[in-house]
Write a protein that binds this DNA or RNA. Structure first.
Lengths: 136, 136
DNA sequence: CATAAAGTCTGTAGCTACTACAGGGTCAAG
DNA sequence: CTTGACCCTGTAGTAGCTACAGACTTTATG
């Protein structure tokens, strides 16, 4: 297998910060790569895929521990992925809650922005956020 | 002014963890409260309002620094709250982006959950997240 | 061919926003 | 008068990075 990627190249290909890659290795999220004589890390295509998976997982809001589980499941295709499904299901619920919360925030912020009396006296921030209403 | 609240009471009234209140004091987000002879902190009603504002702000996704700015604005009613409006506007944009991202996540996760072939072989997780599609 | 810039290495410290102790003092009830 | 609930300070831990310091290697330029 060709191991043509240095850590810098992997960083660019995967979109993951170079220091973060080393960090992921340290916490055993990524396997230890092979090294060339000078001690430089070298990676192959599969490392890019893995790292992209990690990045996307993080973007999707999965924690490191969850991603670790998912990677382990992916590494053992002989096992049923019921567990992975359950993880995804749990996460879906979490995501849906997050969306609802953010939509509530959106509503309040829209009201604050809509408040056009530009003096703190009329646009009393503390009360506004406290009571979830503005300038009424 | 009556300073009838101990830190524990303030914690209950504001919904902010007791240790977190001390932390907020340490980082100068909250003013240093008066102390009784034994060294216990004592708070009044305004502290509750302030702390509720902080909590709500955090819930709305504002960072500590942003909240500090908002509190300062609220403390000076003579200043126009244009700055506060701008902060809220900027934050609203951020929240809207987050909602969109989460909705994209929701879509992907729904697909993963909908994938009913319960072997990792067919439900190839890495490719799934990488390509944003599942079991096609 | 020399040198400078860019890349890599390890290790440690810093970041945000908390949370969780340890080890001690204080206060109210039974 | 002791037990338990509360409070105090200070430090260390948490997640998930990010940013150095100080050293080595590789590559590009004059």
């Amino acid at each position: 297998m060709l191991e043509k990627y240095t850590i810098g190249a992997l960083s660019k290909e995967s979109g993951v910060n170079l220091e973060t890659i080393r960090y992921y290795e340290k916490i055993n999220l990524l396997n230890k790569p092979s090294r060339s004589v000078n001690g430089y890390r070298h990676y192959d295509e599969s490392a890019i895929k893995r790292l992209r998976f990690v990045r996307r997982g993080r973007e999707l809001g999965f924690g490191i521990a969850e991603i670790k589980t998912l990677l382990e499941l992916a590494d053992h295709p002989e096992h049923p992925c019921k567990e992975a499904d359950q993880l995804a299901q749990a996460h879906l619920t979490e995501v849906e809650t997050k969306i609802k919360d953010l939509q509530a925030m959106q509503e309040v912020l829209t009201k604050i922005v809509a408040c056009q009396s530009h003096t703190a006296e009329h646009c009393r921030l503390i009360e506004t956020l406290d009571q979830r209403s503005c300038c009424n």
